[in-house]
Amino acid sequence: MLSRSAERIYWLARYIERTENIARLVNVHMNLLMDLPKDVEMGWKQLILINSSDQIFYEKYNVANEKNITRFLLADDTYAGSLFSSLTAARENIRTSRDLLPDEAWEQVNEMYLFAKKNLDTVSNRRHRVIFLNEILKGCQRFTGLLSGYMSHNHPYAFIRLGRNMERADMTSRILDLASLLLSESRSDEVRQYETILWMNVLKALNALLMYRQQKHSHVNGDDVLDFLLKNTNLPRSVMCCLSEISECIIKLPNNGDLPAKVVELQTYVQAIKTEDTTQAQLRGILDDLQNKIGGLHNEITQNWFLIVSED
């Protein structure tokens, strides 16, 4: 498999996963805001804080209101982190990797892209936004399902899983970041009584609420949610679970060098994170550290497989 193809396929999977994650995040946040009292100081702004895009946002928009933020996060093709930009990048990557994937995979992504492009203007309206996000979520799921049903478990497939799980691990840590932000603002005022709702929404953002209930049999509380989302070994979007998928893929691929050892190191690190009675500052520290480590692993993957330098 060509290094260049491997890189494109890895990014394809990352961008599709990112598209899905942004869609789910906005969806869940919208639901959360509907549940909170109108006078609570808790708004759309948090969504641009979690991936530190507030600066870019304010260069383009004046007010951080629902209309502007959803437009920015979903439809803005000049912001590289938007849903539409991710989907466009996914489409570019699959367009240039069609030789390795089933036809239907390209058609699926292309269809989703055409749908999004046609409906970009509808996202500022809540009702239309719900429909838009549902279509996107379904489309991403179809894509993932299609590959799992049609593709051999070959090297390209390993790169797809690798990309998907790298993005997932990163996104889970960012969503936990969101929780920490929400908590900090809630500690002192009346939002405290809504803490449970906040944590439930964090779980929902990762499609993990049902699984949490089955597993923990407990009242939804911060420490347990944190533990569950970081360390549970069965939940597909927990950091631990992503790491073990990453590890499987890396072991399957040729010339993996010291990457397997690096993943073990990361797993050990996550295992050792203390999730009880963490303060907001501690939590932020842990998550920053974790995100840096995931970024580091990404760089190693890039170095190892994508940048074959020939000695000519």
Binding site: M1, L2, S3, R4, S5, A6, D99, H155, L253, P254, N255, W305, I308, S310, D312
Partner: peptide
């Protein structure tokens, strides 16, 4: 394989090689 110029290299043995994840 669908290759671009940058994916190929001609070595001293005058053979053409493509850059893959296996080398």
């Amino acid at each position: 394989q669908l290759v671009e110029g940058g994916d190929l290299v001609v070595k001293d043995d005058d053979c053409v090689y493509m850059k893959t994840i296996q080398g």
